[in-house]
Simulated scan of single mutants.
Amino acid sequence: MKKLKIGIIGCGNISSIYMENCPKFPHLELVACADLDEKCAQAQAGKFGIPKACSVEELLSDPGIELVINLTIPKAHASVSLQALEAGKHVYSEKPLAITCEEGKQMLEAAKRKNLLVGSAPDTFLGAGIQTAIHLIEQGEIGVPVGASAFMICSGHEHWHPDPAFYYDIGGGPMFDMGPYYLTALVALLGPIKRISGSARISYPERTVRSKPKEGTKIVVSTPTHLSGVMDFASGVIGTITTSFDAFGGTSLPPIEIYGSQGTILVPDPNTFGGPVRIRKSDEKEFSEVPLSYGFAQNSRGLGVSDIAKAILEGGNYRANGELAYHVLEAMHGLLESSEKGTHYIMESTCARPESESKVLQFAEESF
């Protein structure tokens, strides 16, 4: 089997799971990693047996590397991805695709101009849990979908993350950090969004880090930390979403619910790949758990990388693609703009609902 040589830029927290998982896919070959802190790159290379740790410039100039996985902080996503595209590399980026819609457009235009592919996390919607929920909807198990709700509510990352400041900077906050998981899942379940209205606020202008090693450090908050919105989907479904870093007492709300004319589906946490998936039909008194009908229920980050790599090697479509990621990016900005201007935001972009047939997931799962 032909392998695609890949390199990772950004060796922070999230890189470990990619470095662990990518070699498990038979058509991926992780050959290099890079970071602004070369000692960090060297440490990760040693830990995961990556042949080369190098500078970003060295990685981008390596003619053997065809796909770059961009795991830098959100503010750097666009600049690093654009550098990779200009160097002739395909790109798969962590979420969000970019900080601004203009940056996102530049990335997609550069990729088109150079005949390259752009993909983006999250790829959790490709996992067993959400794919099973999609299958239930497609099979008509809840009739015609009419509504949806999504909740991501927590007390903020300063309670656990070793360096949480960027979560409260522009491009962070609960919507840009966690919103991509929920919005991508909703688009995968229900199709593209047509119109948005939203409300957003910075609840606390300053946060105190509670985690080590920066415990006691003060963070000035530059982005909303509590946001709620209403989404009109092109299909006619009306959905609501709330994301918050301000729930210090916790919450009992479900991650995602889909309401249909004949029943309701409880969709699992879209930040995970597995279940449980629960359904209650109109003639039933209780929810029942549905067996997962697809593979990849474990932490399978890298599944989207595998998907785009197969498209590079063999042609065809891939699902965690730039158009989907840009649509989600615009939706997040639309929520903020609606709040700022006090008006509805009409989406300019659209995207295809990602293909959901089980035949697409023809990857070796034995190692997961």
Rank of each mutant, 00 (worst) to 15 (best):
M152W: 09
S293N: 09
V91P: 03
S149C: 14
G295Y: 04
L82R: 00
G119F: 00
I312L: 09
Q106Y: 12
T217W: 13
R210H: 13
A84K: 06
E337G: 03
L336F: 12
K218N: 14
V91C: 10
G49D: 15
S199M: 05
K95R: 15
I9R: 08
L136P: 02
R195N: 06
G173Q: 04
E102I: 09
P63I: 07
M175R: 00
A78G: 05
E38H: 06
S306E: 06
T124P: 06
L324D: 01
R278N: 15
E58Y: 07
C33Y: 03
V267N: 05
L324S: 06
L4N: 08
L324M: 09
G274E: 14
C54W: 06
G46A: 05
I193C: 02
R195Q: 07
S338D: 04
K212A: 15
V290W: 04
I238W: 07
E330R: 01
L126I: 08
C154N: 15
K112N: 14
S306C: 09
S81T: 03
S197Q: 08
Q44I: 12
I265D: 07
Q106H: 12
V221F: 11
L253G: 02
S235L: 14
M19D: 05
G7M: 11
K95I: 14
V230I: 15
S211W: 12
T184G: 05
S244G: 10
G64F: 08
Q83C: 15
S356W: 04
G249D: 10
D283P: 07
P96F: 09
E57I: 12
C101P: 13
I73V: 07
A76N: 05
K218T: 15
D177W: 09
I308K: 00
P96M: 11
P63K: 01
S339M: 15
A364G: 13
G316P: 10
L329G: 01
L28V: 02
T242K: 00
E286R: 07
K39Y: 10
L85V: 01
T350W: 09
F233C: 03
Y18F: 05
E366R: 05
V360S: 14
F248H: 09
A297H: 08
V31H: 08
E355P: 08
A87P: 04
A133T: 02
V31Y: 05
G129I: 06
L126D: 07
Q106D: 12
F151T: 08
I134K: 08
V237K: 01
P276R: 11
L67T: 01
G119S: 03
Y345G: 04
A32S: 03
H135K: 13
E348C: 13
V187A: 03
G46D: 13
V56W: 04
P255I: 00
A297S: 11
K5C: 08
K194N: 13
T242H: 02
Y181K: 01
G88F: 11
P26M: 01
E365Y: 01
H77E: 07
M152P: 06
G147Q: 15
L30Y: 00
L361K: 04
C351E: 01
P74I: 02
A311F: 06
V220R: 11
P122V: 05
G239V: 06
A185N: 05
A133E: 07
Y326C: 11
E94G: 09
L183Y: 11
Q83A: 12
Y318T: 07
K89I: 11
F48P: 00
V305P: 00
C40Q: 14
S211E: 13
S199Q: 08
V31T: 09
G236N: 05
T240E: 09
L189W: 01
